[in-house]
Design a binder for these strands. Structure first.
Length: 503
RNA sequence: GCCCCCAUCGUCUAGAGGCCUAGGACGCCACCCUUUCAAGGUGGAGAUCAGGGGUUCGAAUCCCCUUGGGGGCACCA
């Protein structure tokens, strides 16, 4: 399959949607697998809803995923890439105007003078009569005189495409043979608004034709629209591309994944600390499988194995838990330097948000990595996991400071003895290996379960019951702060009134 | 309403007529490891392959119907 050309054509009317990201990925995978060309085109004809901020979010998202395009618009001073520039539809208006003139000249399209109000009234009537909504064709057969009369009224015409009769059939790369009767298309449809701006179904065809797209790979929501596109391709005298319709990504209730019911913006996943390797891996496996039992796959490995014909037909529910698991798998596979680079912005975010009081240096993070790595489902979890290391004043809940099997008095004794033991051990070296034995010995000597002693210390120095391994944590904290927090905890226990008993 | 598409454990999926008393993964449960939490290891529960008819010696796999779900029917994309 030489000379395959595919495209992703997002419209900058919202942040990059997880579904668009997957469509982009599948297009990219197909292009790379067969050695074809991957094109990015911006569909910004809906000027009312398009924005430059969304455009940036989309481009950044695709870059972040590693889906580099071979042809695409100029961005941030970099010139457009590719022989079919410009790649922004608002800069291609002349092309559409020319195509519209061509259709009008061949009477494959006609001016329609129906007003929005008239159209709405007719639609309401159809709905009331329980008829399927369709344009009833009032302007399809207007004479020159009638058109002139409307023009004289000051009406500006939209342009409608004649769908004609018959059935349109095509062989979908993913779904196989599909056939739709033109009568079910909803009548002649508008391709150019009354204000002269072209509409989606029209521009997509003009552009796919002009850009010589060979494979249109897109979401299933376009399957029913494909006959319109095919009709347009033919009317314009262009060869048809192959069409492949991807299954939809679904909300847990199996409806099309939406902002209302799911987190759909890729940028939100990025902000929470999902990493590109995991997202790419997860998205690739949502609707496609290798046929083997391998599932942790890099983008390169997926490119090698991907075959558009193996893509599923049924929709797939987006399962965040599985994504988190994959994310953890990938975080564990990152090199230390890489992980630190990716972690730093998340630590900085904690700092900016005021949840921690200082930024740890690289050496500190590096030292922490071994104990933190297996405990990070996302990069964003770093604050929860280790934030206590970087705060000046720790908030400790007296309630959890006393281990379940202990009473308050024992806790005070335990922490006091632990502080002394730690202080003594630190004279040798403040290292995990030096701290653990004497503390275990202390517990044994006093008849305490080591776990209880450790838990009291853990809560005293971290404020929480779930933390990385205790001795590594103490080392990360440093001798001074460890002792300081131990003293503060003891004081807290002695000072606070006894409310509950058993203590 | 009309048209189109889809249908294997809760979820993602393997499966292209006999290898399936349906395999893997996530999640869940138990155990092991263990100072907590994870990670890791082992084991388990979990799908009469939506239902019903065919075809065939034989069907999760092919055909038909039913049911269920989804999508589309804009001067949105």
């Amino acid at each position: 399959m030489a000379d395959v050309r595919v495209r992703i054509a997002p419209s900058p009317t919202g942040p990059l949607h997880i579904g668009t990201a997957r469509t982009a990925l599948y297009n990219y995978l197909h292009a790379r697998h067969v050695g074809g060309t991957f094109i990015l085109r911006l569909e910004d004809t809906d000027q009312a809803r398009s924005s430059i901020a969304y455009e940036k979010d989309i481009l950044d998202g695709l870059h972040w995923l590693g889906l580099t395009w071979d042809e695409g618009p100029e961005v941030a001073g970099d010139a457009a890439k590719g022989p079919h520039a410009p790649y922004r539809q608002m800069e291609r208006l002349e092309l559409y105007a020319e195509a519209a003139r061509q259709l009008l000249a061949g009477d494959k399209a006609y001016p329609c003078y129906c007003t929005p109000d008239e159209l709405a009234a007719e639609r309401a009537r159809q709905e009331a009569a329980r008829e399927p909504p369709r344009y009833w064709g009032r302007c399809a057969t207007l004479t020159q005189e009638e058109r002139a009369a409307f023009e004289a009224e000051g009406r500006r015409p939209a342009i409608r495409f004649r769908v004609g009769e018959g059935t349109v059939a095509f062989d979908d790369t993913i779904r196989g043979h599909v056939e739709i009767d033109v009568a079910n298309l909803g009548g002649d449809f508008v391709i150019v608004r009354a204000d002269g701006s072209p509409l989606y179904h029209f521009v997509v065809v003009v552009d796919d034709a002009e850009m010589a797209i060979t494979d249109v790979i897109r979401g299933e929501d376009h399957l029913s629209n494909t006959p319109k596109h095919i009709l347009l391709f033919r009317a314009l005298g262009h060869e048809l591309p192959r069409f492949g319709h991807l299954p939809l990504i679904l909300n847990p209730d199996r409806s099309k994944m939406s902002k209302r019911k799911s987190q759909t913006a890729l940028s939100d996943y990025i902000a929470q600390g999902f990493i590109r390797e995991a997202l790419v891996n997860y998205l690739a496996l949502l609707g496609w499988a290798t046929g083997t039992e391998e599932e942790i796959l890099s983008l390169e490995e997926i490119v090698l194995r991907f075959d558009i014909a193996d893509v599923h037909k049924g929709g797939a529910v987006f399962d965040r838990e599985r994504l988190e698991w994959l994310n953890g798998q990938w975080i564990r596979r990152l090199s230390s330097e890489d992980l630190i680079d990716r972690l730093r912005p998340f630590v900085a975010a904690e700092h900016e948000a005021g949840r921690i009081d200082r930024m740890p240096g690289d050496e500190e993070l590096t030292a922490l990595l071994p104990v933190v790595r297996d405990r990070l489902p996302t990069l964003g979890a770093i604050g929860d996991l280790a934030g206590f290391l970087w705060v000046d004043r720790l908030d400790v809940d007296t309630g959890v400071l006393v281990p379940k099997r202990w009473d308050r008095k024992t806790a005070v004794e335990g922490l006091t003895a632990a502080a002394a033991t730690i202080d003594a051990a630190a004279e040798v070296a403040f290292e995990a290996d030096e701290l653990e034995p004497p503390l275990r010995a202390l517990a044994e000597e006093r008849g305490w379960k080591a776990g209880d002693l450790f838990m009291a210390i853990r809560v005293a120095v971290t404020g929480r019951t779930a933390t990385p391994p205790l001795f590594d944590t103490l080392v990360a904290l440093g001798r001074e702060r460890t002792l300081e927090r131990l003293r503060a905890a003891i004081e807290l226990l002695e000072r606070s009134p006894v409310i509950v008993d058993g203590t």
